[in-house]
Computed example of a mutant assay.
Amino acid sequence: MKPHQTFEAILSLRADLALALRAAAAQGLSEGVCNHFSVAVPGQEDWFLLNPRGLHWSEVQAADIVMCNAQGEQLAGRHEVEPTAMFIHAAVHRIARKSVVLHTHMPYATALTLTAARALDTTLSQTAMRFHGRLAVDPHYNGLALDMTEGERIAHAMHGADVVFLGNHGVIVCGERVDYAYDDLYYLERACQAQVLAASTGGPLMPVDAALAARVAEQTHGERLQSELFFASLRRTIGSEPS
């Protein structure tokens, strides 16, 4: 990729990442000024864009996004980077080779990380079935990720999965593009919400056959227009930048 193309790609990705952060805040997926979204820079294998420390996601603009490398160094940006963000995201980009990495403590998904199963049952709701065969579980909570070693441990625990449930912690959702990953993040929380609500009734749950769940996952993952349309609707309703 030529330098001017890299620059244009960075501008576009910063805008998309900022939009995803504001959308997550609007849809109840954020937690204070914690958690982090990142996206790899095309043509620069070890660079990625990341939200800064200390800003509520609802106020993040494209110009606030910072740039880091896989060694955990900040390359550009007017704000500082939160240490756990650097260590987790640098490791996942470098080891798991994921383009987009979204880490949240969104409530219903996090609630399931506190259970013995640690994760979503992908044979329950139709929304959950889209994740069948795409989940990994890291059941070993080791405290805050304040060094590269913990980030590397999490990255290896993913085993190439798009979604990892971190025991007693939260979730990481990865994807090829910001719009695809955000769509998965949103619907993952909806699936977890449905499971938590169903379990709260105290009645028996009714899963479907694993083969059917796998077929639904293939149908959903094989057609991404809906993801693109969803993100486009967020651009219209939330706006490209806050006023």
Rank of each mutant, 00 (worst) to 15 (best):
K2S: 13
F7E: 11
E8D: 14
A9C: 04
I10T: 06
D16E: 14
A18V: 07
L19Q: 04
A20C: 13
A23H: 00
Q27N: 07
L29P: 01
S30C: 05
N35R: 08
H36R: 11
H36I: 14
F37H: 03
F37W: 05
P42N: 08
G43L: 05
E45W: 12
P52H: 03
G54N: 04
G54H: 01
L55E: 02
W57I: 06
E59A: 14
E59Q: 15
V60E: 02
V66E: 02
M67S: 10
E73N: 14
E80L: 14
A85Q: 02
F87E: 03
A91Y: 00
V92D: 09
H93K: 09
H93G: 09
I95W: 06
K98Y: 07
V100R: 01
H103E: 05
T104C: 15
M106E: 04
L112A: 08
L112Q: 05
A117T: 09
R118W: 06
T123Q: 15
L124H: 07
L124Q: 06
L124E: 07
S125I: 03
S125N: 05
Q126T: 05
P139M: 12
D147S: 01
E150M: 06
A155V: 08
H159F: 09
V163H: 05
F165M: 04
F165Q: 02
H169T: 01
E176W: 10
Y182Q: 04
L188F: 10
E189N: 04
E189F: 09
A191V: 15
Q195C: 03
A198L: 05
A198G: 05
T201L: 06
T201P: 03
G202M: 15
P204S: 03
P204Y: 03
L205C: 13
L205G: 10
L205I: 12
M206A: 08
M206Q: 09
P207S: 10
A211C: 04
A211G: 07
A213P: 01
A213Y: 01
V216E: 01
V216H: 00
V216Y: 00
T220W: 13
H221F: 08
Q226G: 11
L229Q: 14
F230H: 10
A232H: 12
I238W: 02
G239S: 11
S243F: 12
